[in-house]
Design a protein around this nucleic acid. Structure first.
Lengths: 205, 205
DNA sequence: GTCTATAGAAGGATAGAC
DNA sequence: GTCTATCCTTCTATAGAC
């Protein structure tokens, strides 16, 4: 593979990423991708054979990108509260740099639920969740966190972090009408969400 | 308009709703809609002229449906805590009956952000939010709720309620691997989310 | 109001020259 | 490896009979 090959293939991949994120699989046009990559349609097929192949490549890469952001948290040597703060700060910062990612993944999964299964099956969630319970075993007596409610808690944390980006189009408008700026709202969210969750799981004593 | 007219138009609208919710605007096929309505393609155009007209009708109706569910809460004569419990119970129950609604709206708004603006401009959010602060003025000294953090709080409540449905394809798989059932998870969420939020906003004393 | 048949446009994919 | 030209399928939309 020559240097030029890699450059072209990369240009195509980047252009395809943009177009698929904006329009989705069904709404994307090969012509549009070619234009944005500064090449012609035929070359797309030379490198990726079909639209579906190209989409598959983009989707897999982006899905890995977003899911790989969830897992490293679990290994960190921190208190439970610091881990929550760390997660929101890191994860929301990641989404600030990739604001269209959540909507793209959710949309394509809704339209084709099987697509994500192969990727999800490579992650051992059971092990991940047990790790949390083990790591913070001693702390947990001070918190409303147990094996029973862990699914509700974790999905709540994800919701608080991801949803504003998935619903960005609506949030931006509504916040705007209240005199708030979406970007600043997101910036403030890093701290707000952390403290929101922590206050909720702390046991009063 | 004869009775038959209305029946056919309604059949088309219902079929279109299903197909658009499943595939989105770009992925939907007029043939598919006609088949599901038990009629032929030409009749679709007789009633709705173009695909875009038909989509517009469906989208507007569904968007109104989901947004009209947010507002009535504010007028209820209840304590702040009861209002939060009432919201999660009612809203999640509504989404249980319309599980594809959130994903559909979010997706189409992402692909065409202007589409929702006309609808949102009909709602006076400023008035709504002021109403909350007014109604619970006396209570608020006991809660971490003020004009400053109201946007963060309200968007958090929406996130906790809506996101599991928007991300259903992923949640269903992940929860399944942990031995949990999505439907039961949602049922439990009504109470969990309420108490999660209430614990978080209560001032310790 | 509903159907069959078909026009006409758009978009994915390929052939073949360079 | 990259381009132009074109094929061919798919899909929206309409014409016209009943």
């Amino acid at each position: 593979m020559t240097n030029n090959d890699r450059l072209t293939e990369e240009k195509i991949f980047d252009a395809a990423t943009e177009v698929f994120e904006e329009k989705g699989l069904a709404g994307a046009r090969m012509q549009n991708i070619a234009d944005r990559a500064g090449i012609n349609k035929a070359l797309l097929h030379y490198y990726y054979r079909t639209k579906d192949h190209l989409f598959e490549a983009v989707f897999t890469a982006l899905a890995k990108k977003i899911f790989s952001r969830f897992t490293p948290i679990f290994d960190k040597d921190m208190s439970l509260e610091d881990k929550i703060r760390f997660f929101f700060r890191e994860h929301i910062s990641f989404l600030q740099r990739n604001p269209r990612l959540p909507g793209f993944i959710l949309n394509e999964v809704n339209h084709n639920p099987e697509r994500i299964n192969k990727l999800l099956s490579q992650i051992d969630f059971k092990d991940l969740w047990q790790t949390i319970l083990e790591q913070h075993k001693d702390e947990l007596k001070n918190y409303n966190v147990n094996e029973e409610n862990l699914p509700q808690l974790i999905t709540s944390i994800i919701s608080l972090s991801v949803f504003p980006f998935a619903a960005r189009g609506i949030f931006e408008t509504v916040l705007g009408k209240m005199g708030h700026d979406f970007d600043q709202y997101i910036e403030e969210r890093k701290d707000f969400a952390s403290e929101f969750v922590i206050r909720s799981i702390r046991k009063e004593h």
